[in-house]
Design a binder for these strands. Structure first.
Length: 159
DNA sequence: GCCAACGTTGGC
DNA sequence: GCCAACGTTGGC
């Protein structure tokens, strides 16, 4: 088998709940990415993400939405333990241990960007270098989404 | 706080 | 299987 090339992703997080600085302060700068409760995003975590993949860390629902850092996918997908925890906000009584509905992955900080790549700035390239970037699609609400290698390079070039 | 977009739920 | 109601997301 040929070694597979890394894939690229974008992960949204509300900084009030979990920010890039929170990730930086974690032991080994690594954190479980849990609480995803959307089937499209679940499928990506469970079936497509792999260790060594890279992801933009995006701050959403905040004063300055945009990309703030790069993270590395640090595990394969595994059943999200919070779905089985009745005391947890993300508890899902419909999920069974022998057939888990939701998945998590581990994420490790690669680096913070030197500056915020604001949503506004990304959007200003929507007609050119960032055409068809999922993040910029109308009504986009996915919290985990793929980024093409071309878009990945273009965005890093903005920094 | 508002509201558009969109996923999920549940009655039929 | 349809679709209205409802809940959530996320920018503004």
């Amino acid at each position: 088998m040929a070694k597979s090339t890394p894939a690229y992703w974008l992960l949204k997080s509300e900084p009030d709940a979990f920010s890039i600085d929170d990730l930086e302060r974690r032991p080994r700068q690594t954190e479980m990415w849990d609480g995803v409760r959307n089937y499209q995003a679940r499928n990506l975590i469970r079936d497509a993400m792999k260790p060594g993949d890279l992801a933009f860390f995006y701050h959403s629902s905040c004063a300055q939405p945009g990309i703030v850092g790069v993270a590395q996918i640090a595990s394969a997908g595994y059943p999200d333990p919070t779905q089985f925890d009745a005391a947890h906000a993300h508890y899902d009584p419909g999920s069974k241990r022998d057939d888990p509905r939701w998945y998590a992955i581990d994420v490790r900080l690669d680096r913070k960007l030197h500056r915020l790549l604001a949503l506004d700035e990304l959007r200003s390239h929507a007609g050119t270098g960032l055409k068809d970037l999922r993040l910029l699609a109308r009504g986009n609400r996915l919290s985990v989404m793929p980024v093409s290698p071309q878009h990945w390079r273009f965005i890093l070039g903005l920094e």
